[in-house]
Amino acid sequence: MDVSDILAAHEAKQKAVLVEKDIPLEVDSGFLTVTDLNTIDAESYEADLEEHLISTARDGVQTLIASLFSLPTTSSPDGPLAQLPPPTTQLPRAKPLPKPKPPTKWEQFAKAKGIQNKRRDKKVWDEEKQEWVNRWGWKGANKDKEVQWLTEVPANADVDYDPAKAARDERKARVVKNEKQHRANLARAEASSSSSDRKRDIDRTLAVTRTSTASLGKFDRKLEGEKPLKGVKRKFEPTEISASQEKSQNLAILSKLGKGPMTKKSEKSSQSSGGEVLNVRKAIRTVSKGKGSAALARGGSTKGKKGKR
């Protein structure tokens, strides 16, 4: 059997829909976008601009359509829908990413106890009326006790006991309680989100303002019960330490010296890893007289100032 004809016919069909370029086109199906990174051919651009634009656009769109038609589809009433992959290009958002809502007190409790969230329908079935009625609200089922024409009264009830009023008071009390809980949840959410940062910020601002007068706060009028400002407590290492400890401290300084100037990040990581060694940054500053580790590594030049110490 000779299949060359069939193959040739297939090839011809493919030719019409295939696009060949030096650099393959970049397709972002998520945003329905294709980018053609080939250089613009100046000759065809000069010759006929519109023709050039439409032909490059056609090639790009052909590639994009080919990739869109190869996506998996799902059926819908209007016809097949192509499932798009998430976009690869990152576009900036218009609004910041929403923060997850902090759980309410009930949600915390339910989670701790493993209680599944059950959705309560807004409507309940009324056996007597044989229809669906609202659980609350207009003609709500929670008002049944208040509107029924006959109510059982307990034997020990007061003379002026009004069962409808009692039921209504009870319902209103539930509403008030719920509102109170709702408010408490909101307050808790507010507090958990930013309070600690805010308190620290306020304290710091206050401390700065108190020392920001000409006398550094010395002659300011004190309020009653105002506590004196706490400064930074300074800690000193003991002057006499064991030889091994001293050795390890000095070695720690030496090991830091070759590394060049410290960045914020490395500083943070070194503090978290070996916090107990000593304040290396400060030690370097003292030894190099504030010139940094680079100056110390160069050495020699500090000779002249030695006597000043």
Partner: peptide, 20 residues
């Protein structure tokens, strides 16, 4: 960002090209 599209509804293209 959309997760699905009706292919028959693709009607037009906006092409942005540069000069050489």
């Amino acid at each position: 960002v959309i997760d699905a599209i009706h292919l028959a509804g693709l009607e037009h293209v906006i092409s942005v090209s540069l000069g050489p």
